[in-house]
């Protein structure tokens, strides 16, 4: 946490020497988050690439005030949303159609992306509606507070907490039913 404050201070003052450390520190977290949003490694890499390139080019030009990780996570979430919107416009399909509900036959793909250890969770997450999945990932994986997620999504904090509860219940029942099988 203290290291992040120092990195942010240096970044705000245009010290480009900190960029390598920031990239190494957060690259895998952001890559995992983007992959969990998109279920496509290639698109997730595009998102992480775009986010970091913009971040690098803005060194010293923008001022980070809250949390470094929170800022990068928000950038990834926004970029994913933009990508989904663009895809939606392109295919004139709904967000749910863009991320099709997975069947058991999709399991090998999931394990190829996330590894065998996390394939159950990844599979269950994929069954959730997009917005519930987003709240769960931002809160439980990236550690964003509900208030921050509400700001990001442009919704009230109650709506976000509601999505979290519904999402968590559904995820739990999916994982339990999976265990009973």
């Amino acid at each position: 946490m203290l290291e992040d404050r120092l990195l942010m201070w240096k970044y705000n003052h245009g010290n480009v020497d900190v960029l390598q450390r920031i990239y190494v520190k957060y690259k895998d977290d952001l890559m995992t988050l983007a992959t969990a949003f998109l279920y496509d490694r290639g698109s997730a890499e595009d998102v992480v690439h775009d986010v970091f390139v913009t971040f690098i080019r803005s060194c010293g030009k923008q001022r980070l005030t809250r949390s470094l990780k929170g800022y990068l996570v928000t950038c990834v979430a926004n970029d994913v949303r933009n990508k989904n919107k663009a895809r939606q416009r392109h295919a004139s399909a709904s967000l749910e159609q863009v991320s099709p509900i997975a069947s058991d036959s999709n399991r090998p793909d999931i394990s190829a992306v996330f590894g065998k250890r996390s394939q159950r969770l990844a599979w269950a997450l994929r069954q959730l509606p997009c917005r519930q999945r987003e709240v769960l990932l931002l809160h439980l994986y990236s550690g964003l507070k509900f208030r921050a997620i509400a700001e990001l999504e442009g919704e009230s904090i109650n709506t976000i907490q509601g999505r979290y509860r519904y999402g968590l219940n559904k995820l739990r029942s999916l994982l339990n039913s999976e265990v009973q099988k």
Binding site: M31, V113, R117, L121
Partner: peptide
């Protein structure tokens, strides 16, 4: 569930690095 979220891990590729 929070614990299982921490086990999610997808590394970046050498090309992106």
């Amino acid at each position: 569930i929070r614990k299982s979220f921490t086990e999610l891990h997808v590394p970046t590729s050498a090309r992106l690095d």
